[in-house]
Design a protein around this nucleic acid. Sequence first.
DNA 1: CGGGTGACTCGAC
DNA 2: CGTCGAGCCACCC
Length: 120
Amino acid sequence: MTKSSQSKIPEKNTDFFTRVYDVVRQVPSGRVTTYGAIARHIGSPQSARMVGWAINGSHTQSEYVPAHRVINRKGMLSGKHHFGGPRVMQELLESEGVAVIEDHVVNFDSIYWDPYMELI
DNA sequence: CGGGTGACTCGAC
DNA sequence: CGTCGAGCCACCC
C-alpha cells in the first residue's frame, strides 16, 4: 500500500474545505451567512456549490461547525434536511435568537454576517 | 475518463 | 417571490 487514498473527505489537504470551516466557525451566535459570501471570501465566488459540499463534510471535523448558520442568499434554510431532520436547523437558529418562519429567516438582512467583517 | 449530482447563485421574464 | 436556463467545481460510480 504505497498510497492509501480512500478518504471520502480528507481531514486536511483540501484548503478549500478548511477555509470554509474556518469562516463558518467565526460566525457569531444569532447571525447567519450565505454560501456565496463564503465562496467569495475564499476566492471562488462561483463555487458556492462547493461550499455546501464542504459543509456537508463538516461533521468530519473535530471542531464544531455551526452549519445551521449557513443558508442560501434568499434567507431560506436550504440545508435543513441535512441535519438529521427538517426541524433541527430551525430549532438551532431559534435557540440562538434567530426567528424562522416558513423555512426562511426573519430580518435576514439585519442578522446577515459578512465574512469580510473578520478583516476589519 | 466520462457522466450525473448537488446544503448555490445570477440574470431574465 | 414564482420558474427556467446556464455556470460553476468537487465528489461518486
